[in-house]
């Protein structure tokens, strides 16, 4: 073995190598059991050094992490059977993505009564804000470096650098809207969405200045875990809401909101 190569085991164990050095050393590791064992031991040693550096992260981080993992697919294990399926792809619940394109509200025929109902949402919204709705600050998502190609449309919003998250409790679970002004869109995420009563469905609305509540699509009922893109331009929206509507959806809200999200 090249002693010079072997000497890199320590630097490799503590990531004190360039990307190029890492690649070439990892090739060496595949063939050198001694170096593999040494790297594992020296990594454990380095980890022991970190016993000196405990620091409790801010409490809010826990919620962010747990909320994120519930939307994140775990890699398939590596099996010995040689049946190693294709490399795992994506970090996120891609199958949940639903594009609700057919739900654009048709504003024709709106009545004064509905207009009045819209304005009656204002106190709700104010109350929601006053009640210190959990409005998390911008959470920055970094795309994983090993899965750049498989990002779904909803993932792009969830991971946008300017993504803004607003979460609310709902029936003991949590519902969240993530909005990216730069990408002009918003995504609704629920881990445990309650089923709508028979014949009804949950409908999403964006609160647009000067227009009031505009339909942003239906929440699909299939499955309790939901990730759905809101239709329409979310850039200017000051909030979003959810109402129970007839299964086919409505052009204006016809019931009081079950949830109201205030954007910052």
């Amino acid at each position: 073995m090249n002693p010079d190569t072997h000497a890199l085991a320590g630097a490799h164990a503590v990531d004190a190598v360039t990307d190029e050095e890492r690649r070439s050393f990892e090739l060496h590791l595949e063939e050198c059991a001694d170096c593999r064992a040494e790297v594992a031991e020296l990594r454990a040693t380095a980890a022991a050094l970190a016993a000196d550096t405990e620091l409790t992260p801010p409490p809010a981080l826990r919620g962010s992490v747990l909320s994120a993992i519930s939307r994140t697919r775990q890699l398939s294990p590596i099996t010995d059977g040689g049946s190693s399926a294709s490399a795992p792809t994506d970090a996120s619940a891609s199958s949940d993505e639903q594009d609700t394109e057919a739900q654009e509200a048709d504003a024709v025929g709106q009545t004064d009564e509905l207009a009045a109902r819209r304005t009656s949402w204002r106190p709700w919204l104010a109350a929601a804000v006053a009640a210190a709705v959990l409005a998390f600050g911008a959470v920055v998502w970094q795309p994983w470096d090993d899965a750049p190609a498989q990002i779904t449309a909803t993932d792009q919003i969830l991971r946008a650098p300017d993504a803004e998250r607003v979460s609310l409790p709902m029936d003991g679970s949590e519902i969240t809207i993530v909005r990216s002004p730069a990408k002009r869109q918003a995504v609704f995420v629920a881990d445990d969405m309650p089923a709508a009563p028979a014949g009804k469905a949950y409908q999403l609305w964006l609160d647009l200045p000067g227009k009031g509540m505009v339909s942003a699509g239906m929440i699909p009922t299939a499955g309790s875990s939901v990730t759905v893109m809101l239709t329409g331009d979310a850039t200017a929206a000051t909030g979003a809401g959810i109402t129970l509507e007839p299964a086919a959806g409505s052009t204006q809200p016809t019931s009081d909101p079950v949830a109201l999200f205030a954007f910052t």
Binding site: R43, A44, A47, L75, I78, Q142, W144
Partner: peptide
């Protein structure tokens, strides 16, 4: 970074191999 780390731990814990080191060592790596 800490959030990224825990997400990566979540994704990759299916591939954690106890024969190659302790859980804590793996997580800190």
């Amino acid at each position: 970074v800490t959030q990224e780390v825990f997400l990566e731990i979540w994704r990759q814990c299916t591939r954690f191999d106890p024969a190659k080191g302790s859980p804590l060592s793996w997580m800190l790596t």
